[in-house]
Write a protein that binds this DNA or RNA. Structure first.
Lengths: 331, 331
DNA sequence: TCTATTTGTTGGAGCGCTCTAAGGCTGTAG
DNA sequence: CTACAGCCTTAGAGCGCTCCAACAAATAGA
C-alpha cells in the first residue's frame, strides 16, 4: 500500500524530485523530452500528487470548508450542489460538516473545518453567535448563506424574502383579490422578512392585512385554515410550500375548491409544488445560484480581487401554476 | 494572518514542541502542570492544530472521501447526512465531490478525492467502470452505496428492492386484491430488481402479473394509468412515489377514487408521501442508515477489524397510509 | 546509599511536497 | 578558445506536525 512519491517518479524517470514537481504543476519551463519521461514514469507507477503535502509545502489551500445544518433539507443540499459546481470548475475541493442546528455542535464543526486551513468557508444558515463567525473570518474568508450579518469581514448571500412575498401578493391583487391572508412561519428562520413583505405589499395596495400564526409544516397550514373558518379570505399566501399544501387539503375538507373559491400561493418551489397533482403557484428561490454565488464570493477573496464585503440579495421569482385564479365574486 | 504553530505555543508555555504535540493529542503521559500551561498558551494564541500537517506527519488520515452524483437528489443527500453523522462521531471529516453521472467527471472526482489520501472512500451510485473502482480500492478502503459489485475488495450497501416490492404486493393481496399492476421504472437504476420482485411476488401468490412500462416521474405515472383505461386493475404498485402520485391524479381525473376504486402503493417514502394531502402507502428505504452503514464499513477496515468484504442488503419496510384499502368487489 | 524502574520531557529525523538560489549546459559572440 | 547569455535542472531548506530514541528526574527496591 506504500504509494509512490515524487522521489520514486524522479528516480524512475532519471530526473530530480524538483523537476517532477514542475511537471506536475504544469510548468512551461521543462523540456518536452523530460516532461514526457516524467509523465510516463508517473503513469507506470500510478503516481498522483499528495494534496495535503502539496498544500503544506506551498502554504496555499485548494479546499473550501462548508458547514450545513443538515443535508436532509433539500434547500441546503442544492446550495451545496451549487458550491461544488463552482469549486470544481476552479480546482477546489469541498470539505463538509454538519452543525445540526446546535451552537455547540456548530462550533465544533467550525473548529474542525478551520483545522484544514481552508481557502474559504461557507456557512449555510448557521446558528452560532456572530462572535464565532467573526473569529473564523479572521482566519479565512467567510461567506454566510441564508443568514445576514453586519460583520464587515464576511460576505452574505440571501434571498429577498420580503420581495418574494410581495410578488405573491401582487399576483393575487392583479387577479382581483382583496381579502388576502398570510399564514406565517412563526419563529422559523426566514419567517420575519416574509411577514414584513406581506404587510408592506398589502399596505402598498391599500388593503387590510391579516396574519395568521402558523408554521412551516402541512399540519400547521391545515390548522391555520381551520382557524379561518367563518371568515374565509379569497386568497392565502403561505410561508412555504408544505404549509400551502396543508392549507389546500383543509380547504378541500371544508368543501371549498382551490382555486375556484380560494387561491393559494406557496413559497420555495420545492419539487412538491411542481407535481401535477399539486401544481402549486409558488415563489422560487434560486437555490443552486446561492451556492454558486457563495463559492464565487470566496474565490474572489482568495484571489485577492476584493476586500470589501459583498451582500447578495437574490431576487425570488413567481411561478404561476394552478392554485391561483380570479376570485368568483370580487370582494 | 500568520497562524501560530506548535513552536509558538511551546515557546510561550516554556516547553518543547514535542510536549505540545502530546498535549494536543491528549496523551496521558504529561504532567498536569505542563498540560495546563500548554493549554493556556494555546488558548491565548488562538492555536489550533493543522489537520493536514498532522496527517502528513502521522501518515494517517481522518478524512473520508465521498462521491455523489448530485446532491439535488434527496436520496443521496440523506445518505451523506448519515455518513457524516457516523464520521463525526469518530472524529472523521468528509470531503465531498460530485460526479454528475458522467464517467469522465466521476473519474476526475475520484482522482481528486484520492489525492487527499483519505482513510476511506464512499461512492454513492457511481457510474464509472468497475475497473476504476477496483483501482481505487487498491489505494484505500472503498464502499459502494446503491450499486452492487462482485469486487472482493469493496464493501457494498444496497436496498433489497426485490423484497420491497414484495412487501407491497403482499400487503395488497392480504387486503383482497388479485388484479395488481406494476408501473415500472423503465431503464431507471433500481428498476430491474423492483420489477423482478413484483413478478416473483405475484407468482408466489399464483396471480397473473401485469407490468406496464413507465418511468420515475409523476407524468410517467399518469400516462401509464391512462394506458390502463378500459381494463383497470384494482391495485397499482408504482416504481416510486412520484410515479404513484402521478398515477393517483390520472385515476381521479378518470373519475376513480383512491383507495375506494383503486389502491396505489409508492416506493421510497419521500417527504412527499408523508404529506397529509397525499398520505401515500409506500415502501421506506432507510436512507440515513445507508450512510451510517457505509461509514461504519469503512471505519472497520480502517481499524483493521475486517478484511473480507461485507454486503449489506437493507430491508425496506412497508408504510401503510391512506391510499390502500380492500377492493370494493373482490375480483 | 546505590542501582533499577518508572515517569516526564526533549531533540532530531522525516512525512511528501514547494520554492529559492545556485548550478550545468547549450549556443552564439567576442 | 573564452565569455556570456539564455534555458533547464537540481540541491537543500523548510511547511507544521508526529514519533522515536535518548535522557533527566523522581520513585522504588535492595
Amino acid at each position: 500500500m506504500a504509494r509512490p512519491t515524487m522521489d520514486d517518479v524522479g528516480k524512475r524517470a532519471g530526473v530530480s524530485r524538483a523537476l517532477v514537481s514542475l511537471v506536475m504543476r504544469g510548468s512551461p519551463k521543462v523540456s518536452d523530452r523530460r516532461r514526457a519521461a516524467v509523465l510516463q514514469a508517473a503513469e507506470e507507477l500510478g503516481y498522483s500528487p499528495h494534496a495535503m503535502a502539496r498544500s503544506l509545502a506551498s502554504r496555499t489551500s485548494h479546499v473550501l470548508g462548508v458547514m450545513v445544518s443538515d443535508l436532509h433539507n433539500a434547500f441546503f443540499a442544492e446550495v451545496v450542489d451549487g458550491l461544488d459546481a463552482v469549486a470544481a470548475e476552479h480546482g477546489f475541493d469541498l470539505i463538509l460538516n454538519t452543525g445540526g442546528r446546535s451552537p455547540a455542535r456548530e462550533r465544533r464543526a467550525l473548529r474542525s473545518l478551520l483545522s484544514f486551513r481552508p481557502a474559504g468557508l461557507a456557512l449555510l444558515s448557521p446558528v452560532v453567535p456572530t462572535a464565532d463567525i467573526g473569529r473564523a473570518a479572521e482566519q479565512t474568508p467567510v461567506v454566510l448563506v441564508a443568514r445576514s450579518s453586519r460583520l464587515a469581514t464576511v460576505d452574505t448571500v440571501n434571498d429577498d424574502g420580503e420581495r418574494g412575498i410581495g410578488l405573491a401578493v401582487d399576483h393575487l391583487v392583479s387577479l382581483g383579490h382583496r381579502r388576502i391572508a398570510h399564514l406565517d412561519g412563526g419563529e422559523g428562520s426566514q419567517s420575519a422578512p416574509r411577514r414584513r413583505g406581506y404587510l408592506a405589499a398589502m399596505a402598498a395596495h391599500g388593503l387590510a392585512p391579516r396574519v395568521v400564526r402558523s408554521e412551516y409544516t402541512d399540519v400547521g397550514g391545515a390548522r391555520a385554515v381551520r382557524g379561518l373558518a367563518g371568515d374565509m379570505p379569497t386568497a392565502i399566501v403561505s410561508c412555504n410550500d408544505f404549509n400551502a399544501v396543508g392549507a389546500i387539503s383543509a380547504l378541500e375538507e371544508a368543501g371549498l375548491r382551490v382555486p375556484r373559491d380560494v387561491s393559494v400561493v406557496g413559497y420555495d418551489n420545492t419539487s412538491l409544488a411542481a407535481l401535477r397533482h399539486v401544481s402549486l403557484t409558488t415563489i422560487d428561490q434560486p437555490r443552486n445560484e446561492f451556492g454558486r454565488l457563495a463559492a464565487e464570493a470566496l474565490l474572489q477573496r482568495v484571489r485577492g480581487e476584493r476586500v470589501e464585503p459583498v451582500r447578495h440579495l437574490l431576487h425570488p421569482s413567481l411561478v404561476v401554476r394552478s392554485t391561483t385564479a380570479p376570485p368568483v365574486r370580487p370582494a
